[in-house]
Amino acid sequence: MTDTATAGRERAPAGLFGRIGAQNISLLIALVVLLAIFGVLRPDVFFTPRNLINIGLAVTILGILAMAQTVVIVSGGLDISVGSIVGLSTMVLAVAAQETGSIPAGILAGLLAGLLAGAVNGLIIVYGPVNAVIATLGTMSAFRGLAYLMNNGNSIPITGDSLRALGIGTLSGLPFAIWLLIAAMAAFIVFTRETVVGRNIYALGGNPTVARLAGIPIRRYQISIYAMSGFAAAVAGLV
């Protein structure tokens, strides 16, 4: 028993290192070095609260998209059309808000548009069946063209306190957009690590054949994952 306990203690650091990953640790070290360099070069600007908030706002959209794409990639897929879904969902939001005179209705329409666009990707990939790269490369152009045709390529000005608050409003000194990113990060961690669905997604990406034999509904999962990716793109577009 003593030998087992000792071996367990000896394996613990290696297990922790393995969970974090050597590549991730090297990226974190590189990030710390970069921050140190910028901080030394411009200590009067870089680490000021205003600059840090600006950096947080700059990475909000990419952060939300990156988390959704991580789930897609972990499942063994790829979504190239996510940028076009951002544009399509924002155009749907603007048109719906203009036609109905209601910002909440426009927001709902934009989110639904992203969800449906992602589901279309999933249906093409699963029931086509078409390779994910080819399918989303095609829908990237299709969604972009649809967004263009909705108003002949012209921008649509919309005003609303709720949208303005989401973009520039603050809560406890931090913009709402950054709080949204923090909430998305927390949900992402819990979803991927603590839920059965999250573990099934890892299994799906690791070995689809074993996942199918284990009773995981692969097609349903794949369509749902791409729909989630589209919804996340719509949220990013809303921000």
Rank of each mutant, 00 (worst) to 15 (best):
T209R: 07
L62A: 09
M140E: 05
V120R: 05
R19A: 11
S26D: 14
G118K: 03
P175S: 04
L238C: 05
F188E: 14
I218G: 02
P208L: 02
L123P: 15
A109T: 03
Q69R: 00
V239G: 10
L174C: 10
N152A: 08
W179N: 08
L166I: 14
Q69V: 05
I218Y: 02
G215T: 00
G153P: 01
L116K: 03
S224C: 10
F176I: 14
G63P: 00
I55H: 08
S162H: 12
A233K: 03
L28G: 12
F47V: 12
A187T: 09
G15C: 01
L93M: 06
A236N: 06
G77S: 10
V32L: 15
A22P: 15
A186F: 11
N151P: 13
A236W: 01
L137F: 09
D3C: 00
G76T: 08
T2K: 08
I73L: 11
Y148L: 08
V74L: 13
R212W: 06
V95H: 03
L31A: 15
P208S: 12
A58D: 12
Q98L: 11
A184Y: 09
A12V: 09
A211I: 08
Y148N: 09
L123Q: 12
S75W: 07
W179G: 05
V86N: 08
G56R: 09
P43F: 00
A177V: 11
A135R: 02
L163Y: 02
